[in-house]
């Protein structure tokens, strides 16, 4: 198995798989949070522009 980027050495294959799964989950969460924030700022800007 090739070394896992950012993963500490000495992990068993199961630990590496769990490490990757947790990291992937966190990365997706940050991605969707940022995406949501971009959308939110867009809609806030539109709402404020159309208010008056």
């Amino acid at each position: 198995m090739s070394p896992v980027k950012g993963a500490p050495g000495g992990m068993t294959p199961e630990e590496k798989a769990a490490f990757l799964r947790r990291r992937r989950g966190r990365n997706y969460a940050v991605f969707f949070a940022l995406l949501g924030l971009v959308g939110l700022f867009f809609f806030i800007a539109m709402a404020r522009l159309t208010r008056g």
Binding site: A7, P8, F19, R22, R23, G25, R26, Y28, A29
Partner: peptide, 11 residues
Amino acid sequence: TDIDLSEVRDW
């Protein structure tokens, strides 16, 4: 610990 054990549900 050097290993980040957190999952999304922990945050």
